[in-house]
């Protein structure tokens, strides 16, 4: 591993989510891309191909680790095995960023393996802040917390989602991974102005941006990560950069994974929007 690359922070450039189908092609081509993000749990094994390839790629690209299973919003205790595996992975790969979702999934000792929405209440906020604290303490570093897509709202929620997210970061000291596609999906599903959401987020808390494609089903937008980013979401991304400033921006594609070139084209689009925003800031 080249530690010069390994220890580099994630640059304010476009990156792509790395999936096993692209391991070999990435290593053969070493495309010009700012950074890579890997799903932490895909590398929780003790050895074998996934860790081997991640290590190879790590020598060439800054790496971010993105978890889907920590369940910081669950009422049940944190899964100590999960925490230990994440820490071990962080110690080995020294990722530039580590992120989790503002959601829950664990019930007792079982898991629903989906990113489930919390009621936005003082009770949930206090709970999630304590848990993020515990995760940060355990792995010995700050994490980013990502806003998620949701298909329901609880009647007893008292805090708008954007305030809940900003306050989570404020109280726990974590950063925010702002998923612009999820904001768009939720704005359509729950009828609010996505610009208002973005304006409510303190810019200096945002460490990363996610972009992805959604599908429409049963009268809802579903965050499937299986399509190109839509024009509306590109527009919202541009708006986000204007408000928040350039940030590392990731193209996520986790289902019906296309040819690597399709991902690289999407990343190149994000990169040109990022670059024009950087140029505008200089001018």
């Amino acid at each position: 591993m080249t530690t010069q690359v390994a220890k580099k922070p994630i640059p304010a450039q476009a990156g792509i989510g790395i999936r096993h189908v692209h391991f070999r092609e990435m290593l053969e081509r070493l495309p010009d891309i700012g950074w890579l993000e890997a799903h932490s749990e895909n590398y929780f094994g003790d050895g074998g191909q996934p860790l081997y390839y991640l290590e190879q790629l790590r020598a060439h690209y800054p790496l971010s680790l993105h978890g889907v299973g920590m369940s910081v919003g669950s009422a049940s205790p944190l899964d100590q095995t999960h925490l230990k595996k994440l820490k071990k992975l962080c110690d080995r790969f020294e990722p530039g960023l580590v992120s989790e979702h503002l959601c829950w999934g664990r019930v007792g000792e079982y898991h629903l393996n989906e990113l489930l929405p919390l009621p936005y209440t003082e009770e949930a906020l206090a709970h999630v802040v304590l848990r993020i604290d515990a995760v940060q303490e355990f792995i010995g570093r700050k994490i980013l917390i990502e806003n998620l897509s949701s298909y329901l709202e609880y009647k007893h929620s008292t805090i708008p989602e954007w305030e809940f997210l900003a306050e989570t970061a404020n109280r726990s000291g974590c950063g925010i991974l702002l998923d612009v596609n999820n904001i768009y999906v939720n704005a359509c599903n729950h009828d609010f102005d996505p610009h208002k959401y973005i304006e409510a987020i303190p810019p200096d808390t945002v460490g990363e941006i996610h972009l992805a494609g959604f599908e429409q089903r049963d009268g809802l937008l579903i965050d499937t990560h299986s399509r190109n980013v839509t024009d509306d979401v590109w527009d919202l991304y541009q708006f986000t950069l204007e408000i928040i400033g350039p940030r590392p921006s990731l193209i996520e594609w986790d289902a019906d994974i296309p040819e690597l070139d399709v991902l690289l084209q999407e990343a190149s689009k994000a990169q040109s929007i990022l670059q024009s925003e950087k140029n505008a800031a200089v001018a």
Binding site: E41, F44, V68, G69, D79, T81, H82, G105, L112, N113
Partner: peptide, 11 residues
């Protein structure tokens, strides 16, 4: 058999 973990590889 409920899923035992947030890591789907354990299912």
């Amino acid at each position: 058999y409920f899923s035992p973990s947030g890591d789907l590889h354990n299912l």
